[in-house]
Design a protein around this nucleic acid. Structure first.
Lengths: 139, 139
DNA sequence: CCTATAATGTACTAATTGTATCATTGTATA
DNA sequence: TATACAATGATACAATTAGTACATTATAGG
Protein backbone atom coordinates (compact mmCIF):
# COMPACT_ATOMS: atom_id res chain seq x y z
CA UNK A 1 0.00 0.00 0.00
CA UNK A 2 1.17 3.52 -0.63
CA UNK A 3 -0.06 4.92 2.69
CA UNK A 4 2.72 5.19 5.21
CA UNK A 5 2.82 5.94 8.89
CA UNK A 6 6.13 7.80 8.65
CA UNK A 7 7.50 7.57 12.15
CA UNK A 8 9.84 10.44 12.81
CA UNK A 9 11.89 11.19 15.89
CA UNK A 10 12.27 14.88 16.54
CA UNK A 11 14.71 16.35 18.99
CA UNK A 12 13.47 19.76 19.99
CA UNK A 13 16.71 20.59 21.77
CA UNK A 14 19.19 19.46 19.20
CA UNK A 15 19.65 22.89 17.70
CA UNK A 16 18.66 21.52 14.31
CA UNK A 17 15.53 23.21 13.01
CA UNK A 18 12.45 21.01 12.99
CA UNK A 19 12.08 21.31 9.25
CA UNK A 20 15.67 20.22 8.75
CA UNK A 21 15.12 17.19 10.91
CA UNK A 22 12.05 16.26 8.87
CA UNK A 23 13.96 16.70 5.63
CA UNK A 24 16.86 14.61 6.86
CA UNK A 25 14.74 11.79 8.20
CA UNK A 26 12.60 11.52 5.08
CA UNK A 27 15.74 11.40 2.98
CA UNK A 28 17.31 8.77 5.18
CA UNK A 29 14.17 6.62 5.24
CA UNK A 30 14.10 6.79 1.48
CA UNK A 31 17.76 5.80 1.38
CA UNK A 32 17.03 2.88 3.70
CA UNK A 33 14.11 1.68 1.66
CA UNK A 34 11.61 2.41 4.42
CA UNK A 35 10.04 4.84 1.99
CA UNK A 36 9.69 3.93 -1.65
CA UNK A 37 8.89 5.82 -4.84
CA UNK A 38 5.16 6.31 -5.11
CA UNK A 39 4.56 6.23 -1.37
CA UNK A 40 2.17 8.83 -0.10
CA UNK A 41 3.43 10.85 2.83
CA UNK A 42 1.10 12.11 5.55
CA UNK A 43 -0.60 15.42 4.83
CA UNK A 44 1.13 18.46 6.21
CA UNK A 45 -1.62 18.80 8.78
CA UNK A 46 -1.64 15.18 9.87
CA UNK A 47 2.11 15.01 10.29
CA UNK A 48 2.14 18.34 12.06
CA UNK A 49 -0.48 17.09 14.49
CA UNK A 50 1.48 13.96 15.20
CA UNK A 51 4.75 15.80 15.67
CA UNK A 52 3.07 18.56 17.66
CA UNK A 53 4.39 21.27 15.41
CA UNK A 54 2.76 23.84 13.17
CA UNK A 55 1.74 22.50 9.79
CA UNK A 56 3.71 25.27 8.11
CA UNK A 57 6.84 23.72 9.51
CA UNK A 58 5.99 20.45 7.85
CA UNK A 59 5.04 22.34 4.71
CA UNK A 60 8.43 23.97 4.72
CA UNK A 61 10.15 20.62 4.97
CA UNK A 62 7.97 19.25 2.19
CA UNK A 63 8.75 22.27 0.04
CA UNK A 64 12.47 21.72 0.43
CA UNK A 65 12.09 18.04 -0.43
CA UNK A 66 9.91 19.02 -3.37
CA UNK A 67 12.47 21.45 -4.71
CA UNK A 68 15.05 18.69 -4.42
CA UNK A 69 12.72 16.51 -6.53
CA UNK A 70 12.62 13.97 -3.72
CA UNK A 71 8.90 14.28 -3.21
CA UNK A 72 6.08 15.68 -5.28
CA UNK A 73 3.54 17.83 -3.46
CA UNK A 74 0.24 18.42 -5.17
CA UNK A 75 -2.21 20.98 -3.94
CA UNK A 76 -5.54 19.38 -3.19
CA UNK A 77 -4.13 15.88 -3.59
CA UNK A 78 -1.31 15.05 -1.27
CA UNK A 79 2.43 14.44 -1.15
CA UNK A 80 4.26 11.52 -2.70
CA UNK A 81 7.75 10.17 -3.00
CA UNK A 82 8.90 10.94 -6.52
CA UNK A 83 9.21 8.12 -8.96
CA UNK A 84 12.81 8.13 -10.14
CA UNK A 85 12.87 6.76 -13.63
CA UNK A 86 16.33 5.80 -14.89
CA UNK A 87 17.48 8.11 -17.68
CA UNK A 88 16.70 5.73 -20.53
CA UNK A 89 13.18 5.24 -19.23
CA UNK A 90 12.88 8.96 -18.82
CA UNK A 91 13.83 9.47 -22.46
CA UNK A 92 11.29 6.87 -23.51
CA UNK A 93 8.59 8.64 -21.50
CA UNK A 94 9.68 11.88 -23.09
CA UNK A 95 9.21 10.48 -26.55
CA UNK A 96 5.92 8.88 -25.61
CA UNK A 97 4.56 12.10 -24.27
CA UNK A 98 5.57 13.97 -27.41
CA UNK A 99 4.05 11.22 -29.50
CA UNK A 100 0.79 11.36 -27.58
CA UNK A 101 0.71 15.13 -27.84
CA UNK A 102 1.37 15.00 -31.56
CA UNK A 103 -1.23 12.35 -32.20
CA UNK A 104 -3.84 14.32 -30.34
CA UNK A 105 -2.99 17.34 -32.47
CA UNK A 106 -3.04 15.50 -35.76
CA UNK A 107 -6.13 13.54 -34.90
CA UNK A 108 -7.95 16.72 -33.99
CA UNK A 109 -6.80 18.41 -37.18
CA UNK A 110 -7.99 15.53 -39.34
CA UNK A 111 -11.21 15.35 -37.41
CA UNK A 112 -11.77 18.99 -38.25
CA UNK A 113 -11.33 18.14 -41.89
CA UNK A 114 -7.82 19.33 -42.60
CA UNK A 115 -5.65 17.43 -45.02
CA UNK A 116 -2.18 16.06 -44.45
CA UNK A 117 -0.81 18.76 -46.72
CA UNK A 118 -2.50 21.52 -44.80
CA UNK A 119 -1.35 20.17 -41.45
CA UNK A 120 2.27 19.70 -42.38
CA UNK A 121 2.39 23.07 -44.09
CA UNK A 122 0.92 24.79 -41.06
CA UNK A 123 3.36 23.03 -38.75
CA UNK A 124 6.30 24.16 -40.91
CA UNK A 125 5.05 27.73 -40.96
CA UNK A 126 4.35 27.82 -37.25
CA UNK A 127 7.70 26.35 -36.31
CA UNK A 128 9.40 28.86 -38.55
CA UNK A 129 7.59 31.87 -37.19
CA UNK A 130 8.02 30.69 -33.63
CA UNK A 131 11.76 30.40 -34.19
CA UNK A 132 11.95 33.87 -35.74
CA UNK A 133 9.97 35.36 -32.91
CA UNK A 134 12.27 33.84 -30.32
CA UNK A 135 15.78 34.05 -31.73
CA UNK A 136 16.74 36.79 -29.31
CA UNK A 137 15.46 35.13 -26.18
CA UNK A 138 16.78 31.63 -26.49
CA UNK A 139 18.07 30.20 -23.24
CA UNK B 1 -20.97 0.12 -32.25
CA UNK B 2 -21.52 3.39 -30.49
CA UNK B 3 -21.17 2.04 -26.97
CA UNK B 4 -17.56 2.08 -25.83
CA UNK B 5 -15.78 0.60 -22.88
CA UNK B 6 -13.32 3.49 -22.70
CA UNK B 7 -10.37 1.99 -20.91
CA UNK B 8 -8.40 4.69 -19.18
CA UNK B 9 -5.21 4.44 -17.18
CA UNK B 10 -5.03 6.90 -14.35
CA UNK B 11 -1.87 7.70 -12.46
CA UNK B 12 -2.85 9.08 -9.09
CA UNK B 13 0.67 10.22 -8.35
CA UNK B 14 1.61 11.75 -11.66
CA UNK B 15 0.98 15.31 -10.58
CA UNK B 16 -1.65 15.71 -13.27
CA UNK B 17 -5.15 16.16 -11.88
CA UNK B 18 -7.48 13.24 -12.52
CA UNK B 19 -9.78 15.35 -14.65
CA UNK B 20 -6.85 16.43 -16.82
CA UNK B 21 -5.80 12.85 -17.34
CA UNK B 22 -9.31 11.93 -18.43
CA UNK B 23 -9.41 14.87 -20.84
CA UNK B 24 -6.04 13.97 -22.32
CA UNK B 25 -6.78 10.31 -22.74
CA UNK B 26 -10.15 10.87 -24.38
CA UNK B 27 -8.51 13.29 -26.82
CA UNK B 28 -5.75 10.81 -27.44
CA UNK B 29 -8.13 7.94 -28.10
CA UNK B 30 -10.08 10.12 -30.46
CA UNK B 31 -6.89 11.04 -32.25
CA UNK B 32 -5.95 7.38 -32.53
CA UNK B 33 -9.33 6.37 -33.86
CA UNK B 34 -10.15 4.29 -30.81
CA UNK B 35 -13.04 6.68 -30.32
CA UNK B 36 -15.04 7.90 -33.28
CA UNK B 37 -17.59 10.62 -33.87
CA UNK B 38 -20.96 9.51 -32.64
CA UNK B 39 -19.55 7.13 -30.03
CA UNK B 40 -21.27 7.27 -26.70
CA UNK B 41 -18.99 7.65 -23.73
CA UNK B 42 -19.77 6.03 -20.40
CA UNK B 43 -22.03 8.03 -18.12
CA UNK B 44 -20.29 10.17 -15.57
CA UNK B 45 -21.38 7.77 -12.87
CA UNK B 46 -20.34 4.62 -14.66
CA UNK B 47 -16.90 5.91 -15.53
CA UNK B 48 -16.44 7.31 -12.05
CA UNK B 49 -17.30 3.92 -10.57
CA UNK B 50 -14.81 2.19 -12.80
CA UNK B 51 -12.03 4.67 -12.14
CA UNK B 52 -12.83 4.81 -8.42
CA UNK B 53 -13.21 8.56 -8.45
CA UNK B 54 -16.10 10.86 -7.67
CA UNK B 55 -18.50 11.31 -10.55
CA UNK B 56 -18.05 15.07 -10.36
CA UNK B 57 -14.45 14.58 -11.33
CA UNK B 58 -15.57 12.82 -14.48
CA UNK B 59 -18.23 15.48 -15.01
CA UNK B 60 -15.53 18.12 -14.84
CA UNK B 61 -13.48 16.35 -17.49
CA UNK B 62 -16.56 15.95 -19.67
CA UNK B 63 -17.39 19.63 -19.25
CA UNK B 64 -13.92 20.63 -20.43
CA UNK B 65 -14.18 18.33 -23.43
CA UNK B 66 -17.65 19.68 -24.11
CA UNK B 67 -16.42 23.26 -24.05
CA UNK B 68 -13.72 22.25 -26.52
CA UNK B 69 -16.50 20.86 -28.76
CA UNK B 70 -14.89 17.44 -28.62
CA UNK B 71 -17.83 15.78 -26.98
CA UNK B 72 -21.45 16.71 -26.58
CA UNK B 73 -22.98 16.12 -23.19
CA UNK B 74 -26.72 16.10 -23.02
CA UNK B 75 -28.53 16.14 -19.74
CA UNK B 76 -30.75 13.13 -19.41
CA UNK B 77 -29.30 11.52 -22.53
CA UNK B 78 -25.64 10.84 -22.24
CA UNK B 79 -22.33 11.94 -23.64
CA UNK B 80 -21.18 11.52 -27.22
CA UNK B 81 -18.20 12.26 -29.40
CA UNK B 82 -19.24 15.16 -31.60
CA UNK B 83 -19.87 14.54 -35.24
CA UNK B 84 -17.39 16.34 -37.43
CA UNK B 85 -18.98 19.59 -38.43
CA UNK B 86 -18.88 19.84 -42.24
CA UNK B 87 -16.38 22.49 -43.28
CA UNK B 88 -19.09 24.95 -44.09
CA UNK B 89 -16.96 27.58 -42.47
CA UNK B 90 -15.12 29.97 -44.70
CA UNK B 91 -11.63 29.19 -45.85
CA UNK B 92 -10.26 32.03 -43.81
CA UNK B 93 -11.84 30.72 -40.61
CA UNK B 94 -10.62 27.29 -41.54
CA UNK B 95 -7.03 28.47 -41.79
CA UNK B 96 -7.33 30.46 -38.60
CA UNK B 97 -8.60 27.51 -36.68
CA UNK B 98 -5.84 25.27 -37.98
CA UNK B 99 -3.31 27.94 -37.13
CA UNK B 100 -4.66 28.25 -33.61
CA UNK B 101 -4.68 24.51 -33.16
CA UNK B 102 -1.12 24.24 -34.44
CA UNK B 103 0.16 27.02 -32.26
CA UNK B 104 -1.39 25.47 -29.19
CA UNK B 105 0.32 22.22 -30.07
CA UNK B 106 3.71 23.74 -30.73
CA UNK B 107 3.52 25.95 -27.69
CA UNK B 108 2.74 22.99 -25.51
CA UNK B 109 5.55 20.95 -27.02
CA UNK B 110 8.08 23.72 -26.44
CA UNK B 111 6.75 24.19 -22.96
CA UNK B 112 7.50 20.54 -22.30
CA UNK B 113 11.06 21.10 -23.44
CA UNK B 114 11.00 19.54 -26.89
CA UNK B 115 13.15 21.00 -29.61
CA UNK B 116 12.04 22.15 -33.04
CA UNK B 117 13.79 19.12 -34.52
CA UNK B 118 11.98 16.71 -32.24
CA UNK B 119 8.63 18.30 -32.91
CA UNK B 120 8.92 18.37 -36.67
CA UNK B 121 10.27 14.83 -36.75
CA UNK B 122 7.43 13.56 -34.61
CA UNK B 123 4.88 15.35 -36.77
CA UNK B 124 6.33 13.74 -39.90
CA UNK B 125 6.29 10.30 -38.30
CA UNK B 126 2.79 10.69 -36.97
CA UNK B 127 1.41 11.97 -40.25
CA UNK B 128 3.02 9.04 -42.02
CA UNK B 129 1.72 6.39 -39.67
CA UNK B 130 -1.71 7.93 -39.56
CA UNK B 131 -1.87 7.89 -43.35
CA UNK B 132 -0.79 4.27 -43.48
CA UNK B 133 -3.30 3.26 -40.86
CA UNK B 134 -6.14 4.96 -42.66
CA UNK B 135 -5.61 4.33 -46.37
CA UNK B 136 -8.45 1.82 -46.48
CA UNK B 137 -11.04 3.82 -44.63
CA UNK B 138 -10.78 7.22 -46.20
CA UNK B 139 -14.14 8.93 -46.52
C1' DC C 1 -52.05 10.42 -23.97
C1' DC C 2 -50.58 11.04 -19.12
C1' DT C 3 -48.04 10.14 -15.30
C1' DA C 4 -44.52 7.92 -12.57
C1' DT C 5 -39.98 6.45 -12.40
C1' DA C 6 -35.34 5.73 -13.71
C1' DA C 7 -31.22 7.43 -15.86
C1' DT C 8 -28.51 11.13 -16.91
C1' DG C 9 -25.97 15.49 -16.54
C1' DT C 10 -25.80 20.13 -13.65
C1' DA C 11 -25.19 23.26 -9.88
C1' DC C 12 -23.89 24.34 -5.63
C1' DT C 13 -21.53 23.38 -1.51
C1' DA C 14 -18.30 21.10 1.58
C1' DA C 15 -14.05 18.76 2.72
C1' DT C 16 -9.25 17.94 2.06
C1' DT C 17 -5.09 19.28 0.59
C1' DG C 18 -1.03 22.41 -0.22
C1' DT C 19 0.47 27.71 -0.73
C1' DA C 20 1.45 32.46 0.41
C1' DT C 21 2.10 36.07 3.48
C1' DC C 22 2.83 38.18 7.53
C1' DA C 23 3.37 38.03 12.74
C1' DT C 24 5.75 36.22 16.70
C1' DT C 25 9.52 34.21 19.11
C1' DG C 26 14.12 33.20 20.19
C1' DT C 27 18.95 33.94 19.75
C1' DA C 28 23.27 35.74 18.22
C1' DT C 29 25.88 39.78 17.98
C1' DA C 30 27.24 44.66 17.56
C1' DT D 1 20.45 46.89 25.28
C1' DA D 2 19.33 47.01 20.48
C1' DT D 3 19.17 45.04 16.19
C1' DA D 4 19.09 41.52 12.77
C1' DC D 5 17.90 37.21 11.35
C1' DA D 6 16.27 32.52 11.44
C1' DA D 7 12.61 29.46 12.97
C1' DT D 8 8.05 28.82 13.90
C1' DG D 9 3.16 30.01 14.16
C1' DA D 10 -1.38 32.18 12.55
C1' DT D 11 -4.37 33.26 9.04
C1' DA D 12 -6.27 33.58 4.66
C1' DC D 13 -6.24 31.53 0.13
C1' DA D 14 -6.25 28.25 -3.94
C1' DA D 15 -6.76 23.69 -6.21
C1' DT D 16 -8.74 19.27 -6.28
C1' DT D 17 -12.08 16.08 -5.18
C1' DA D 18 -16.36 14.60 -2.90
C1' DG D 19 -21.37 15.13 -1.32
C1' DT D 20 -26.09 16.43 -2.04
C1' DA D 21 -29.95 18.09 -4.26
C1' DC D 22 -32.04 19.14 -8.62
C1' DA D 23 -33.37 19.55 -13.75
C1' DT D 24 -33.93 17.17 -18.06
C1' DT D 25 -34.87 13.26 -20.85
C1' DA D 26 -36.44 8.68 -21.88
C1' DT D 27 -39.49 5.03 -21.07
C1' DA D 28 -42.87 1.96 -19.09
C1' DG D 29 -47.82 1.37 -17.18
C1' DG D 30 -52.17 2.85 -16.77
Amino acid sequence: MSEKKLTLQLDFHSGLPIYTQIVNQVQSQLANGILKPGDQLPTVRALALELRVNFNTVARAYRILDEARIISTQQGRGTFITEIPPPEVSERLRQESLSALTQRFIGEAYRLGFSEREVSQMVRDSLKSWKEANVSEQD
